[in-house]
Each structure stands twice: as C-alpha cells, then as structure tokens.
Simulated scan of single mutants.
Amino acid sequence: MDSQSSTDSSTLVSEARNDDRHGGPHKDHAVILLHGLCGSQLEMGSIPKQLKKAGCTVIPLTIDNYSAALTNPRVSPDWEAWCAVVESRVARLKEEFRTVSLCGLSMGATLALAVAARSKDLLSVVLLSPVLQYDGWSVPWYWKLLTVVYDMGFRNWSYKESEPYGIKNYEMRRRVAAALEKDGVAAVGAAAIPARHLRAALRMIAFVRKSLPLVRTDTLIIHSIDDETASPRNAEVILQHINAEVRKVIWLGDCYHIITVDNEREIVTNETVMFIKRSIEIHGNELSRKYLGHSSPLKDRRH
C-alpha cells in the first residue's frame, strides 16, 4: 500500500515543486531514485545533484519494508507493495510533470524493471548494476541453500554484508566498513539484510525475469564486468529480452557492484544524466508517452 510512513506523502509533489524543480529545457521531467534493498539514498552518489543541475526534478523515494530507515525485520514484505508505492508516485507525478523516469541501483534497478513491465507511463529507466540473479564472484556457495532454509520455516536471520562491500576503491571501502560498524548503514546500504526481505526480492526477480518482454521504455544499463554480486550475465539477459526500441549498455572495468560511489562514479553519473536528457529531447518536448505508444518505431535502435 502507498503508506503515509513512506516519503511518498501527499505533500511531496508540492514540495518538489517548491524545492527541487529547476528551470530550463528539462523542468517538466521528474526522476524517481530507487536505492538498493534495505539501503538508503546515500547509495545514489552524485546522481541527484547532477540531475538537478540538468533541470530535472528529483524524487528520492523511500519505501516501507524496503528502505533501511523503514525496515522491520519481523515483517514479511511484499514486493508488489513496493511496486505499488512507485506506481502511485509515478501516477501523481504525471499529473504535475510531462514525463517521468526511474533510476535504480542494484535491487532498486530490479524494482524499476518490475514497474516498467507493469506501467506505460515512464519515459525511461536507468538500471545501475541490476540483479536478476545473485551470481557474482563473491556470492558464497551456500547462497541458494538460504531460500531452502527460509522455506523450511527458519526466518529470523539476516544476510550480513562483508568485504569488499561492493566497492573496489580501497579508501572508500575502508570508510564504508567504519560507517557500517558505527551506524549499521552506509553508502553501500545496510550492514545486514533480513531473510524476509531477501525472499521478497527473489520473488520480485522471478516476476521480472518472466516479464522482461513487457518492458518497452527507453532503457540504459550500466554494469561492471567485475561485479562481485551480479555477474555481467544479468545485464546481458535484460538487454536481450526487453522490447525497448532505445536501449543501451555501458560496461565498466574498474569497479564492483556499487558503481555510483566506486572508481568510475563520474562516468556512471554523466551517462545517467545524458541518457535521461536525450530521452527527454527525443520524446518529452513534443509528444506524450501515450501518443508514442501508437507511433512508428524509433529509428535509433541501440544494442
């Protein structure tokens, strides 16, 4: 449900208008930011700042039983409720803005895909280190057994984050480790993810894998070839199975999973902003997405 304890309260659109709306050619575009599972907006790095500089309105969304500050380890979350919060926000923003995009990191990217498969109201989606399978080189061999343990009824446990915390940069990793020890959350997310939240995320992944052909909105994927959490195969599967006419993938070679704060963070930020601006220029200034749904295919097909 679209609960009041999430930051999707009824006052947010007006707050965005007063505080975050910028002038310029992209002032009629809103971007919803989706951090990783049990994480926070710290994960998004400099992307919010640069999107605002580009004239977009930025909506840093937090969600009940998804975001770190709103997580209850004893509650069994529902991934469809996560989607419903995002979809509700998109619908409200569409009343205020001409176009809306989603930008998600890690499981936030998977959540963005789930919404894109269920909605025709999005201009574009940016998928940063999307996860369709936990198959990176640091994932422990016993990972798949955890779901078996959960389904057997043992549910009061958490999956603890460990080195390298999704970050290749040593100095950043050291600071993250200190923040996790002190506060339990850092730029890479939470120190531990409750079993119930992991199970809900896996159910969402199952839906997304089946629903990729329903994704038709402009799509940018940025993924590291050395991602320790989700291998490059995750990005390849998405690229192969979505039906977006405009699609693009960027491969990174000097970072791990949390690409927004690692060695190539500037590339990630710049490519994200440029892709969204280009989608606005192609679609947003002349036509609504409803009209585009009935128009001829775009000539600029990217692979």
Rank of each mutant, 00 (worst) to 15 (best):
192 A>G: 09
213 P>Y: 00
221 I>P: 01
181 E>P: 02
204 M>K: 01
181 E>Q: 15
222 I>C: 01
181 E>Y: 04
191 A>R: 09
188 V>A: 05
203 R>F: 12
204 M>E: 00
145 L>E: 10
216 R>M: 03
204 M>N: 10
218 D>T: 06
148 V>W: 11
145 L>P: 08
213 P>D: 00
170 Y>K: 12
162 S>T: 14
215 V>T: 05
217 T>E: 02
193 I>V: 15
181 E>S: 07
167 I>A: 07
210 K>Y: 01
211 S>W: 01
167 I>Y: 00
178 A>W: 09
194 P>Y: 04
177 A>K: 14
176 V>K: 07
169 N>V: 06
166 G>I: 12
208 V>D: 06
218 D>L: 03
220 L>C: 00
176 V>E: 08
178 A>V: 06
157 W>Y: 03
162 S>M: 13
191 A>M: 14
169 N>I: 09
172 M>L: 14
165 Y>R: 07
175 R>K: 09
214 L>N: 15
179 A>M: 12
219 T>A: 03
204 M>Q: 02
194 P>W: 07
172 M>E: 13
183 D>V: 05
216 R>V: 07
177 A>D: 09
158 S>Q: 03
150 Y>C: 09
217 T>D: 01
153 G>H: 04
187 A>Q: 14
196 R>Y: 07
148 V>P: 05
149 V>E: 14
215 V>I: 00
195 A>T: 10
152 M>N: 13
190 A>H: 03
145 L>S: 11
220 L>H: 05
194 P>Q: 06
221 I>H: 02
182 K>S: 08
200 A>N: 10
185 V>G: 07
149 V>S: 06
217 T>C: 08
201 A>S: 10
145 L>W: 03
173 R>H: 09
212 L>N: 03
164 P>D: 04
156 N>E: 05
208 V>W: 05
144 K>H: 14
214 L>F: 11
205 I>T: 03
198 L>K: 15
222 I>N: 11
201 A>V: 00
162 S>N: 05
207 F>A: 09
200 A>P: 04
190 A>F: 02
193 I>L: 06
191 A>N: 14
165 Y>D: 03
169 N>E: 08
147 T>E: 15
169 N>M: 04
181 E>F: 02
157 W>T: 02
168 K>Q: 07
175 R>W: 08
195 A>W: 11
